[in-house]
Design a protein around this nucleic acid. Structure first.
Length: 256
DNA sequence: ATGGTCGTTGCACGA
């Protein structure tokens, strides 16, 4: 089973590239973030014609997440399971695809450490842990993937010195991510590339992509039954090139 | 040291 995640930064703008990419890469499951579409505007028919069932949770304008699958798609959950206040934003959707419980996330950015949005990000990550624990056990086949807006370690940052005091690298948000890993999840890309300085997001500005100034913030986490099946992981940086790219590259994993 | 580019919607703001 080939599973991928991609923050497309507007599915309306990116749809031609997503269609081309699906035909080329042939993932069985694709998790999409930042569709920026209402559910009415989501192009389910386009994906159906390519052989994919889909579930979308959107609000239009901002946020919006979706799961596409050609290995079955059932038990769809929008927003958080596991209690607490529902998220006012459309940032999380879960479905059972090919026997794997897949949660697709668009974690809040945080903006800056002194911003209310950063506290929202930390609360959101705590609720994500409750969500995963409510729906599954560490011995189940579980994937949590998407745009985490967290670089797990300084290895995932092109120049850690430039991010001192910034979001995406703060100890509190890294601890939340570690909490998810302590529960039983593994960073599948890092499992296959222990020392790689490779990134999944580059700012559109100042030629950051071509200068190699990026962050690895798009993650695929899997429980040990998934991690033991994972034989390949790659960031498809080619998808960040060319005409009208997203600022994120897809991350792909292959499960035996 | 600063700002740079996108995508949204409107003529600013979030990322």
């Amino acid at each position: 089973m080939r599973l991928a995640t991609w923050n497309v930064n507007s599915l309306k703008v990116r749809l031609p590239r997503v269609e081309e990419w699906l035909a080329d890469v042939q993932p069985d499951v694709l998790c999409v973030q930042e569709t920026k579409l209402s559910d009415d505007a989501f192009p389910a028919q386009t994906f159906a014609a390519l052989g994919y069932e889909s579930a979308h949770y959107g609000q239009g304008q901002w946020n919006g997440v979706a799961i596409l699958s050609r290995v079955g798609l059932s038990e769809v959950v929008t927003n958080f399971a596991g209690g607490g206040d529902p998220d006012p934003d459309a940032r999380i959707i879960t479905a059972l695809c090919g026997g794997v419980r897949v949660t697709c996330v668009y974690v809040p950015n945080g903006r800056s450490l002194d911003d209310d949005h950063y506290q929202y990000k930390l609360r959101w990550l705590a609720q994500l842990r409750s969500h995963v624990a409510a729906l599954s056990k560490p011995t189940d086949q579980v994937v949590v993937t998407g745009d985490f807006n967290i670089a797990p370690t300084d290895l995932d940052v092109y120049d850690p010195g430039k991010f001192v005091g910034a979001t995406h690298v703060s100890p509190a948000e890294r601890a939340e991510l570690q909490g998810l890993c302590d529960w039983g999840m593994t960073d599948l890309f890092r499992q296959h590339h222990a020392d790689a300085k490779l990134y999944s997001w580059w700012d559109y500005r100042a030629g950051d992509f071509h200068q190699g100034r990026g962050l690895r913030i798009d993650l695929v986490l899997g429980t040990s039954p998934v991690a033991s099946r994972c034989e390949f992981a790659v960031i498809d940086r080619n998808a960040r090139k060319g005409q009208l790219p997203s600022d994120h590259a897809p991350v792909i994993v292959d499960l035996a």
